[in-house]
Amino acid sequence: MKRKKSLNQAILISVMSAIAFIIQYFDFPLPFMPPFLKIDFSEIPALLIAIMFGPSAGIMVEFLKNTLHFIIKGSETGIPIGQMANFLAGTILILGTTLVYKKKSTKGGLILGLILGSISMAIVMSIANYYLILPFYEKMLNYSTTASEKLILIISGIGPFNIIKGIIITTLMVPIYSSLKPRLKIN
């Protein structure tokens, strides 16, 4: 019985990773944000898996999705910087969401978790972009920005983008969760 459950879980993680990978291709920029910041809904399959099987399963979906994306699409730098940033953002969202949902497995707990995850994602991604991601892009693409230019980009672009992304994901995730909860073995 335990082997069958593990096999079913592995199959579902694989299928949801493939779905997330496909969804990731339907990304789009927001008209008032820097064009390299693109919204996609590929965190939704990872969040569903995280709710069903725990955060490590959701993080595995994020990992597989981004690995496939790099293998198939590549990167402008030759190194998966964008995919690593997407993985980090998705992981933070999953951890924040499941931290709350694990304690309060209700629709309200999910909403609260998604809000916490979104705020955490915006904060962590702002810090990571300032100290790691943007400097790495600068080095790999041979350009530079001043500290104040980076700070302006983070305050006016990256931080708000992640909040907006969190709001959109939350708005989509709640009705999906509500419709799937009776059909799936979701806590």
Rank of each mutant, 00 (worst) to 15 (best):
I164W: 06
L132S: 06
Y177A: 00
L151W: 13
E149Y: 10
Y130R: 06
L99A: 14
I176P: 03
T146I: 08
M125P: 05
T106E: 01
G113S: 01
L134M: 09
I176G: 01
I94V: 07
K165V: 05
I154N: 09
T91M: 15
P160M: 08
I94L: 08
S179L: 13
S148Y: 14
S179D: 03
L172M: 11
G113P: 00
L112C: 10
L141A: 03
Y101K: 07
I111V: 10
Y143C: 00
L132F: 14
A128V: 02
P160K: 04
I133G: 04
K107R: 14
M173K: 08
L99F: 15
T91F: 13
G157E: 05
K181P: 00
Y137P: 00
I164C: 03
S126N: 12
K107N: 11
G96C: 08
S178Y: 04
L134C: 04
Y177G: 00
I92D: 03
K104T: 15
S148P: 05
N129K: 06
E138I: 03
K102L: 12
S105F: 11
T145R: 13
E149C: 05
I163N: 03
I152K: 14
S144F: 12
M125F: 07
I163T: 02
I127C: 05
G109V: 08
I123S: 07
V174A: 03
G90P: 07
T145S: 12
I169K: 10
S105C: 14
G166N: 04
K104E: 15
K103P: 07
I123W: 11
G90M: 13
K102S: 15
V124K: 06
Y143K: 02
L141K: 09
Y177Q: 00
K104R: 15
L132A: 11
M140F: 11
I127K: 06
K139G: 11
Y143V: 01
A147S: 15
G159T: 10
P135Q: 04
I115N: 00
G109C: 06
G117C: 03
I111N: 07
S105H: 13
L151Y: 13
V124I: 13
T145L: 14
T98K: 10
G157K: 11
G109I: 12
G113W: 04
Y143L: 01
N162Y: 08
L134F: 07
I169H: 09
G166L: 04
N142V: 07
P182A: 00
I167G: 10
T91P: 05
A128C: 10
L116Q: 02
A128I: 05
P175W: 07
G96Q: 04
I154A: 08
S105Y: 10
I123P: 02
T98P: 09
L172G: 06
G166W: 05
I168S: 11
I127E: 04
I152N: 09
T98M: 13
I127D: 05
K102T: 12
S126M: 11
I163Y: 02
I168W: 08
P160G: 04
K150F: 09
K102Y: 15
K165I: 02
A128N: 07
T97S: 10
P182N: 01
A122S: 15
K104C: 12
S144G: 09
G90H: 13
P135R: 06
N142P: 01
L112S: 09
L116N: 00
I111L: 14
L172K: 05
F161G: 04
T91C: 12
T106C: 06
K103D: 14
K150R: 15
I164M: 09
